[in-house]
Amino acid sequence: MVTLTHYLALSAILFGIGAVGFLVRRNALIVFMCVELMLNAAGLAFVAASRYRGLLEGQLTVFFVLTVAAAEVAVGLALMVAIFRTKKTTNVDELSSLRG
């Protein structure tokens, strides 16, 4: 029998993979995609909980998270394009002039 624990475990694994990806990839675009993966994992947990608790709220929340994530993608990609115009790179490690 598939339980809520199954789904939560899967979403935690996806979340963890996304978090590690955020920390090991240098391409800003992939780094950002990893954030999307993490949000996606959270969405899965919401929908599963919604199902197992017999509540609609979880699904609605995912709808909002999805929309906000889409908006965030727009802002983020615009930012990366802007930086690329100045610095000609999307390598986050090369953007470390501010430090200390």
Binding site: L4, L8, S11, F15, G18, A19, F22, A28, V31, F32, V35, M38, L39, A41, A42, G43, A45, F46, A48, A49, Y52, R53, E57, G58, T61, V65, E72, V75, G76, L79, M80, I83, V92, L95, L98
Partner: peptide, 23 residues
């Protein structure tokens, strides 16, 4: 960009946290 990437990273934690509480 730093603010954005890390802010997005942190808000993923927020969403997952809310999901767990909701679960």
């Amino acid at each position: 960009l730093k603010y954005f990437l890390l802010g997005a990273f942190a808000s993923a934690f927020l969403v997952f946290g809310i999901a767990l509480i909701f679960a």
